[in-house]
């Protein structure tokens, strides 16, 4: 049946994206630990289903805003993983010319308006992007990813009210991995949490199992359709778990090992793999997809280590046109 095989192909594509994100981040964490990728890396391993399930419903013209934990969002939106790996290594050819690093990954060619080092900062930016889309009468929407920690910042309240007020085409995605850095977010969040807060501002909220990519995909499909039909902003609260520490070097000693182990048993990739096998996809085909992802990212990492450093002039470029900095004498 053509419909079923289309659906299977779509799911295989989602599996491939999740596998690529995981492989990318495994290489990124290893590179950070080895001292090859400077600075800090925030892995989203275990959360891939949220990025992929949402972005599977986006078009190239749609925009996303992202967070410090944004590799998955970028790859799921179609960013060039090789250029991202170069960026993480601070090398020439990086997607930001080596000037952004992991926390500022962006790829405007695919509508990825940037990861952000400031928690919650993407929310107002997403609102404005949606206003511009409307002013220009573009057929596009904005997906705005943020963590559960962002709901305690002021821009969250401002942005929910703003998006609802102007009925903006924004899908807010609260990626709730349970932790805000080293603190369990429930320990510092009063009241009913993200969905209740969004609804209080008039943004309809849906709660979904973020470790089930098919559930995320289904929910996002529904919400995106409503947004495209002019229904105004929608909110998706995706519950998941951060397998790794806050950064690539955080051992996450502040939480019980059994809790993290249980999350690994709920692996979003493993669940989709099982669903595909049950639907008759050969285990060897799936294994090949995963092996390809690992090979791709390993080669990106090797290429990054072999790549040149940026030309030093880049440090002084793209500041501003009027009053640009001069090279030091």
């Amino acid at each position: 049946m053509a419909g079923a095989s289309n659906e299977t192909a779509r799911r295989i594509a989602m599996l491939r994206d999740m596998a690529r994100i995981r492989a990318f981040e495994r290489e990124a964490v290893a590179a950070m630990r080895a001292g090859e990728a400077p600075g800090v890396v925030h892995p989203s391993i275990g959360q891939e289903g949220v990025a992929v399930g949402v972005c599977a419903n986006l078009r190239r013209a749609d925009r996303i805003t992202s967070t410090h934990r944004g590799h998955g969002h970028a790859i799921a939106k179609g960013a060039d993983a090789g250029a991202m790996m170069l960026e993480l290594h601070g090398r020439a050819g990086g997607c930001c010319g080596g000037k952004g690093g992991s926390m500022h990954i962006a790829d405007f060619t695919v509508g990825m308006l940037g990861a952000n080092g400031v928690v919650g900062a993407g929310i107002p930016i997403a609102c404005g992007a949606a206003q511009a889309i409307r002013l220009k009468q573009e057929e596009a929407i904005v997906a705005c990813f943020f963590g559960d920690g962002a709901v305690n910042r002021g821009p969250f309240l401002e942005g929910m009210n703003w998006a609802a007020l102007y009925r903006l085409p924004v899908l807010f995605v609260c990626e709730d991995n349970g932790f805000a850095a080293f603190t369990r977010n429930s320990a510092v969040t009063a009241g009913g949490g993200p969905a209740v807060r969004a609804e209080a501002c008039g943004v309809p909220a849906t709660v979904v199992d973020g470790e089930d990519v098919l559930a995320v995909d289904g929910a996002a499909a529904d919400l995106v359709a409503r947004i495209r039909a002019g229904g105004g902003p929608q909110f998706l609260h995706a519950k998941c778990y951060r397998w790794e520490g806050h950064t690539g070097t955080d051992a996450a000693a502040y939480r019980p090992a059994e809790e993290a182990a249980a999350a690994r048993d709920r692996d979003c990739i493993g669940r989709l793999r099982a669903a595909l096998e049950a639907a008759g996809v050969a285990a060897t085909e799936i294994a090949a997809i995963e092996a390809d992802a690992e090979a791709e990212m390993a080669s990106h990492r090797a290429a990054a280590m072999a790549a040149a450093w940026p030309d030093l002039g880049a440090a002084f470029s793209d500041v501003q046109d009027s009053g640009a900095p001069a090279w030091p004498a």
Partner: peptide, 10 residues
């Protein structure tokens, strides 16, 4: 922030 988002979208 919305000003920025709107500028980034042209």
């Amino acid at each position: 922030g919305a000003g920025l988002g709107a500028a980034l979208c042209g």
